[in-house]
Simulated scan of single mutants.
Amino acid sequence: MNPIQEYFYRIEEPDRSTLLFLRKKILESDTENITETLSFGLPFFKYKKKMLCYFYYSKKYKKHYVSFYHGDRLDDPQLLQEDRKKFKILLIDMNEDLPVELILKLINEVKQYIKA
């Protein structure tokens, strides 16, 4: 098992399946330019080798989230900035429908701020 697979393997179901589904959607959204790496022990998604977003778990909210680079430039009421400078997060409520369209829209916005 590679380190990225190990990261997801440590997450309990049904959260694991939800995050794996979201991971697949992100990677499929731009197969030529979006890649995945493991940085700081977390699955990071990169756009043309530049930081795009990553998954993590909030102990404060007890929820997984997607953290968007250049989040400080994104304007969506569902995003939380808190004490972060360049990132904003979107909490994932596993009891609600996954906001795939919103996540892909935010990713497309972030891609516009990345200098290739």
Rank of each mutant, 00 (worst) to 15 (best):
D83R: 12
K60F: 07
Y61G: 00
Q5F: 08
L98H: 09
R84Q: 10
E109W: 01
N108I: 00
H64C: 02
K115R: 10
K63R: 15
Q112C: 04
P14M: 13
A116Y: 07
V100P: 04
I11A: 13
L106E: 03
E28S: 11
K46A: 02
R84S: 10
L102Y: 07
T35M: 01
S29E: 05
K105E: 06
L22M: 12
E96Q: 15
G71H: 09
S17G: 14
I11C: 05
P43D: 04
P43H: 01
V66A: 02
E96V: 12
H70F: 14
F87K: 02
R16S: 04
F45E: 01
P14L: 13
Y113A: 00
Y7L: 11
E82T: 14
Y65I: 10
P77C: 09
G41H: 11
D76C: 06
G41P: 12
D97C: 01
K88N: 05
L38E: 11
K24H: 13
I103W: 03
V110E: 06
I26K: 09
T37A: 12
Y47R: 02
Y57F: 15
L74W: 00
I26F: 05
L91M: 15
P14I: 09
F21P: 01
L79F: 13
T31V: 11
I92F: 04
V110P: 11
G71A: 09
D30M: 08
L38C: 07
Y113Q: 00
K86Q: 06
I4H: 13
Q5C: 05
T37G: 10
Y65N: 10
Y47H: 07
Q78T: 10
E101W: 00
S39I: 06
K62Q: 14
E13F: 06
P99F: 11
I11G: 09
L22V: 09
E28F: 03
E13H: 11
S58I: 08
M1T: 09
I92D: 11
F8Q: 06
K25T: 11
H64P: 05
K48S: 05
E13V: 03
R73N: 00
S29N: 13
E13Q: 15
I34G: 10
G71E: 08
Y113G: 00
T31L: 10
Y54G: 01
D76S: 04
K86N: 05
I107K: 02
T18H: 08
T35E: 12
P43K: 04
Q81H: 08
N95W: 02
L102D: 10
T31R: 13
M1N: 07
Y69L: 01
S29L: 07
I103H: 05
L106A: 03
K86S: 06
F87R: 03
T31K: 14
I26S: 07
K60L: 11
P3H: 05
V110Q: 08
H70S: 04
Y65L: 15
R73A: 00
D83F: 09
E13P: 12
S39V: 09
F55L: 03
I34L: 06
F68S: 03
E101R: 02
S17N: 13
M51V: 02
L20E: 15
P14W: 12
Q81S: 12
Y65S: 06
L74Y: 01
H70G: 02
K105L: 08
E12R: 14
E36Y: 06
A116I: 03
L98R: 12
L102I: 04
L98W: 10
E28V: 01
D72C: 10
G71Y: 06
I4V: 13
L38N: 11
T18G: 01
F44N: 07
T18Q: 14
L19F: 08
K85S: 07
